[in-house]
Amino acid sequence: MAYTQILIAGFGGQGVLFAGKVMAYKGLEELKQISWLPSYGPEMRGGTANCSVIISDTPVGSPIVSEPDILIAMNLPSFDKYENAVKAGGYAFVDSTLIERKAVRTDISVHYIPATKMARDLEVPTLANMIMTGKVIRETGVIKMEGLRDALAKTVSAKHQDLLEANLRAIDAGYNYKG
């Protein structure tokens, strides 16, 4: 029975909470137990933001993720802060455009994705979060690719539905990134 704890962390504005929402909505579609908990308050305006997501086959206890199975680090301060928290045997996904150092841990699988650069090249500069999400799906299978469009359509607000395709493209790019 899987009980997967995900921590997504980065600067405010990098779409940390949104990436968590996509996973939560998709998890719900897959009939999993879900919790999504954002950091909140003024730090969301340009400071660091993080988001705890739990996707599970059994009821979710505490929604606070302090020892993630999966860490998605979108900036250096977040990687510095949370690298040691990742459970042994877990995963770290690192935006290598913004985080130049390598992981210290050797007991976790670490994936380096130049997500910010890829997003710029794809002309979707705000969607590094979705590129990271694509890679997470590929490597961990925590949620499935099938049916992602529907989940995404629910996550994207009504006024941003025109960005649905761009989001899907970014997820695809991350999913297919070999590195």
């Binding site: 929402k21 939560a24 719900l28 137990q33 879900i34 919790s35 999504w36 908990l37 954002p38 909140y40 979710v60 929604p63 606070i64």
Partner: peptide, 10 residues
Amino acid sequence: DGTIGQMMEP
């Protein structure tokens, strides 16, 4: 409390 207020669940 703030946690239950801010968190999302089904």
